[in-house]
Design a binder for these strands. Structure first.
Length: 160
DNA sequence: GCCAACGTTGGC
DNA sequence: GCCAACGTTGGC
């Protein structure tokens, strides 16, 4: 099966791209997805799929870098941890209700590709991310859009 | 802090 | 199964 592309949102005050880079092996599990549609997308992820890392609910929302899926979906242990903010009493070790993947940071953009900037790119206007009212924290990205965003990031490098 | 646009819950 | 009330997301 061919590689797929995704976008995952995180609030940088909770977990930022820098936090991911600082982890051992620049790798961490992606805990806390508690929306079924986002969760279903996450379960479709395959090893080596690439992920746009998006910072949400912050001063400058936008894409900050690229990560890679290094472990496919497995039970999210925070869902049965009563002390976790992601605790779900309907989930248990025996019958897990939520899953997570492991991701590794791959490349940090020198500058954030802000939501504002994305909205100015004609080719990207069909992205799920830019659709009104869509709030999924995990969503698929078309290959052409992924490549366009990487190009934007590279153009930013050469300009500076 | 506001509020639009969702998703979820629970009474009926 | 309907739907009002409530909670959450996330840009602004």
């Amino acid at each position: 099966m061919s590689k797929k592309y995704w976008l995952m949102k995180s609030e940088p005050t909770v977990f930022s791209f820098d936090n991911l880079m600082a982890k051992p092996d620049a790798t961490d599990h992606w805990e806390g997805v508690r929306n079924y549609q986002a969760h279903n997308y996450m379960r479709e992820m395959q090893k080596d799929d690439l992920v746009l890392f998006y910072h949400s609910n912050c001063e400058i929302p936008g894409i900050v870098g690229i990560a890679k899926v290094i472990r496919e979906a497995y039970p999210d242990h925070t869902s049965w941890d009563a002390s976790s903010r992601y605790y779900d009493p309907k989930s248990s070790l025996q019958n897990p209700r939520w899953f997570m993947v492991d991701v590794q940071s791959k490349k940090k953009f020198r500058h954030i590709i802000s939501l504002k900037e994305l909205r100015k790119v004609p080719e990207l206007q069909e992205m799920n991310l830019l659709r009104k009212g869509q709030r999924l924290s995990v969503m698929p990205v078309m290959q052409k859009d992924f490549e366009k965003i990487v190009k934007l990031a590279e153009a930013t490098y050469s300009r500076s």
